[in-house]
Design a protein around this nucleic acid. Structure first.
Lengths: 154, 154
DNA sequence: CTCCGTTCGTTAGCATGCTAACAACGTATT
DNA sequence: AATACGTTGTTAGCATGCTAACGAACGGAG
């Protein structure tokens, strides 16, 4: 019983994701930062200050995964954990001044790889790709939020 | 200097890849197998016998990554390493008979998640998505094979 | 105010990714 | 044959992913 990987969205999304991350990691390596770490800085630039849980939600990873990311970035001096006055459970993550001069280079690397990845695609095709990926993502998110076998109205 | 993740192919491919893997892992967990391990069996069903290096190439991962996969699957009894007569360096991977009864269930899980992921997309849109992902993948592969700063014809 | 369920961050343990460096083997060159 | 170079698989070390289980803090019900 065969299974056709070549026509599987999961297969292609997996290997494109690996290839994209690898490409960007190569660009970022000289700056001592990784793909996911650069995304953390991106969200901090975008939103200012974020708690670990909200950052985890934005990056679509679980809490322990984000903790590891923040641990390494705090050790490297890119970010800092601050206590939250309103809620003593929360720890607010903010970018340090040491990270600011590097962010410009990171954004340049990200744009470069993005340009290379979408070479040969016109604006419509790129938008179509993003639209289709959002649709698939939404399908998978809804799936985890409302598993079919848990819908039991008594 | 902001960077717009929402319109980044890399961002969406990353989180869709994570969501897809997570969904399939949930389906496969009862069978004691993981997403990547199921793909190994898929390739073995498709091609019969494969050396580790050719399997790594098909799965788009590096040799040490594939070694870990095969190590765990051999320990679980799904696959077996066999020596190769023609080339004593190679180790041929083949599926064991113990894995065969599970493969049908794995393929069913894969088809189920695939159907859920592409819900709301017609055949044309799905093909378009696969086509665009292949294009992006090809761009990134070419990039790593011919880095621009290494083209130096003297 | 106390109890109880939820949320937040952490820990432990495992699966998957990578690069760098190595030994063993194959192959081409001299 | 001897040398050199490429290929194959392994090891070590690190970065990212996950679930399960936990303590601390919040918030609402009684």
């Amino acid at each position: 019983m065969k299974y056709d990987f070549e026509s599987s969205v999961g297969y292609w999304v997996t290997i494109v994701s690996l290839a994209y991350r690898k490409a960007l990691n190569e660009e970022l390596a000289p700056h001592g930062i990784t793909f996911r770490q650069s995304q953390v800085l991106g969200w901090l630039v975008h939103d200012g200050v974020l708690s670990q849980s909200s950052l985890a939600a934005k990056m679509e990873v679980e809490a322990p995964t984000l903790k590891g990311l923040v641990d390494r970035m705090e050790a490297a001096g890119w970010v800092k954990r601050c206590s939250c006055m309103d809620d003593r459970r929360k720890k607010l993550i903010r970018m340090t001044s040491a990270a600011e001069p590097v962010w410009q280079k990171i954004a340049d690397c990200a744009r470069k790889v993005r340009r290379e990845a979408t070479a040969g695609l016109n604006r419509d095709e790129t938008n179509q790709l993003l639209h289709l990926l959002r649709t698939v993502h939404n399908n998978l998110i809804l799936r985890s939020e409302v598993p079919a076998d848990e819908i039991q109205i008594g």
